[in-house]
Simulated assay, not measured.
Amino acid sequence: MSLPPLKQRFAELIALPSVSCTQAALDQSNRPVVERLAGWLDELGFACELQEVSPGKCNLIAVLGSGPGGLVLAGHTDTVPYDEALWSSDPLRLDERDGRWFGLGACDMKGFFALAIEAVLPLLDHTRKQPLKQPLILLATCDEESSMAGARALAAAGQPLGRAAVIGEPTGLKPIRLHKGVMMERIDIVGQSGHSSDPSLGHSALEAMHAAIGELLVLRGEWQREFANPQFSVPQPTLNLGCIHGGDNPNRICGQCALEFDLRPLPGMQPEALRQAIRERLRPVAERHAVQLDYRPLFPAVPPFEEAADSELVRIAESLTGHSAEAVAFGTEAPYLQQLGCQTLVLGPGDIACAHQPDEHLALERIEPTVELLRGLIRHYCL
C-alpha cells in the first residue's frame, strides 16, 4: 500500500463510515478506519497493534521507536450520527469550498490522523540514520462518541503508553488542560396502553415522562445556581435532553417511553450524588402516574479532567502555540490517558462549534500550523 498525499488521506478516512451510537441500528464498526491507518503507518515503519475491544470495535497502537517515555498523538476514529439531508454535500465525501475541507470527521476528528502522519514524514530520514531517543506513538481509539469503550479498555489494561499525550480534539489550536465530566443516562417508563377515548383504560408513559422531564429541568436549574467555575466558557453544569422514543399510534395511550440525556458536571461534582438526586425526584413521578420507572447510566461516567498548569507538557504547548492553556465544556479521553501515567493535553485544529452538526469542516489555514505544532512536539519528546 503506497502512502497517498494528505488530501487523499483525509478523503479516504472520511469515506469510511464509523458511527458510534447508543442506538444499535445506527452503530457501526471502526475496523476499516484503523486498518487503513495501520496500513499507512506500517509502510512508514511503525509497529502496529490492533486491539479488539468488542466485535467490530478496535483500538490501534502504532509505535515508531522503542523504550520508555515518548509522545502519544491520540484521537478517536468514530463519528456521531449525521443528518445527510441537512448537509450541503455528501458527508462521506471530502468537499473543498470556501477555504475549508467539509466531511464527517474532518473536524472531530479523523482528520487529525492525516495531519499527524504529515507531521511525521520529514522526520523519517532522521530515524533511518539515528533511532528516536524516545518513541512516537499514534493511538486511534473506538467509541469515544458513545461509551468511551476504547479508552476505558486501555486504562483497564494498564499498559504504559508514553511520557506525554496530546489528544487532537477540536480546540482551535489552543491547549486545553481542564474539561468537565460526561454522564450519559437513560430513563425507561412502562405504563399501560389502552384506547385513547378513555384515559381510565391506561397509564400514559408519555405523560409520566413529561413529568420526569420537568423534574430534570428543575434539578438542572438548582445545580446551575449552586455550581459555577469561571474557568469554563460555559461556567455551569449542563443537562441536555438528547433523544426520546415513545408510543406507536395517536389513538393508543402510550405504553412505553424512553429518554436519553447527558450531564456535564464540573470538577468537584460527584456523579453518584447527582444520580441519587435524580432518583429521589423521579420516585414520586412513578408513584403519581402509576407506572414502572427505571433510571440507569448508559455508560460509566467520564471523570472531569485537569492537567497541572505547571506540567512540562502544558508549558511546551503554550510555548509552541502562543496561547495559555484553557478549559472546555466538552469531555474527552484525557482522564483515561492520565490514568496510564501520561501528562495529557487536548489540542487540535478543528473548532468545536462545527462538530456534531451538518457541514462539519476544517479550515485549510489550520493545516500547516497544526503540522508544524505536531513536529515541534515530536522534536521535543522524541528526537
Results as ranks from 00 to 15, higher is better:
278 I>M: 14
372 E>A: 15
52 E>F: 00
321 T>H: 05
178 L>K: 12
56 G>N: 11
62 A>G: 09
378 I>S: 03
168 G>F: 04
309 A>Q: 13
201 L>H: 09
102 F>Y: 15
101 W>R: 04
54 S>N: 06
336 Y>F: 15
209 M>T: 04
266 L>Q: 03
359 D>Y: 06
222 E>W: 07
89 S>G: 12
102 F>Q: 05
74 A>L: 01
28 Q>L: 13
182 V>F: 05
177 R>V: 01
366 R>I: 01
30 N>T: 07
54 S>L: 09
18 S>G: 13
180 K>N: 07
200 S>C: 05
271 P>K: 00
35 E>W: 08
27 D>E: 14
80 V>N: 10
214 G>P: 07
100 R>M: 05
340 L>C: 13
318 E>C: 12
341 G>S: 10
22 T>G: 14
201 L>M: 07
112 F>L: 11
380 H>G: 05
104 L>N: 03
279 R>G: 00
168 G>V: 07
152 R>K: 12
159 Q>L: 14
234 V>P: 00
67 G>Y: 04
375 R>P: 07
332 T>Q: 04
347 L>C: 10
224 Q>H: 06
327 A>V: 08
234 V>C: 10
369 P>Q: 02
113 F>E: 05
156 A>R: 12
320 L>Q: 05
329 A>T: 12
372 E>P: 00
134 Q>D: 09
323 H>P: 03
92 L>W: 11
323 H>R: 08
203 H>N: 13
291 V>L: 12
257 C>S: 13
176 I>R: 03
107 C>K: 04
348 G>Q: 04
363 A>M: 07
176 I>V: 15
245 H>R: 14
351 D>I: 08
348 G>H: 05
75 G>E: 05
135 P>K: 00
294 D>A: 11
113 F>W: 08
231 Q>P: 00
131 P>A: 01
68 P>I: 03
297 P>A: 04
186 R>S: 06
120 V>N: 02
2 S>K: 15
309 A>P: 03
337 L>W: 02
46 F>V: 13
275 R>Y: 08
334 A>V: 10
56 G>K: 10
